[in-house]
């Protein structure tokens, strides 16, 4: 289903993050005329095209979504996808590492092993520029946010909350549980693109 989001926007329901990523990649590979924003979410992709003919755009999106659903996930990496996972070295000395181990009921070593043991995938970005919600976190590490958020979390902090992990791209307030820090710069306004992580990027943490 494609929903109307004002005069310039169409919200395509994909039903899953994987389909959102494939539709996002297909639209970026062959961008319909007039499209300025393509914003994937867990179950949707928002397409914004001010001044474009909404009927024509809708027909085109229908077509691309159909092709994406038909080709299926086994058709290999979508166009534009990263060939390799981004490896993020982490110093596991976060302020919440011990309490995470306690709450998860496992030793600290195992927290690190479980955080580094799986390849994660960037679901979408939000909260702040370059702040990527990494999906696929080991369920043992699914813990609620801190009851009281910190007023300032340093840039490069590696954290978890709910079913997600993330790296703070810049210093900001935050309620995620801090496992460690990385020196990898994931957000740089002078780089093109400014964010190392994009929807669909695969990420692997490793102990520094």
């Amino acid at each position: 289903m494609i929903r109307v989001a004002g005069e310039a926007g169409l919200l395509v329901e994909t039903g899953s993050l994987a389909v959102s990523h494939r539709l996002d990649a297909a639209l970026r590979a062959s961008r319909p005329a007039g499209v300025v924003e393509i914003v994937p979410g867990p179950e949707t992709v928002l397409v914004v095209a001010p001044g474009a003919d909404q009927g024509l755009l809708r027909a085109r999106l229908d077509e691309v979504l159909g092709a994406v659903l038909e080709s299926g996930p086994e058709s290999g990496a979508p166009p534009g996808a990263e060939p390799e996972a981004v490896v993020i070295p982490v110093v596991y000395d976060g302020e919440d590492l011990d309490s995470v181990a306690e709450l998860a009921g496992i030793p600290v070593d195992e927290v690190i092993a479980r955080h580094t043991g799986r390849e994660l995938v960037v679901g979408w970005l939000g909260f702040a520029p370059g702040f990527a919600y990494l999906t696929g976190l080991d369920p043992v590490l699914h813990l609620p946010r801190l009851a009281t958020p910190r007023t300032s979390v340093p840039a490069g902090s590696v954290a978890i909350a709910g079913p997600y992990s993330a790296i703070y791209p810049t210093a900001s307030p935050g309620g995620w549980r801090l496992l460690g820090r990385t020196s990898t710069r994931i957000w740089d306004v002078d780089a093109d693109p400014p964010s190392l992580l994009r929807p669909g990027t695969r990420v692997r943490f490793e102990p520094a």
Binding site: D24, V36, E37, I38, V39, P40, L46, V48, W124, L125, G126, F127, A128, P129, G130, F131, A132, P193, P194, S195, R198, P199
Partner: peptide, 11 residues
């Protein structure tokens, strides 16, 4: 700055 919404950047 349109075009960066997917990277978490407001317009």
């Amino acid at each position: 700055r349109p075009g960066y919404a997917h990277l978490g950047v407001p317009c």
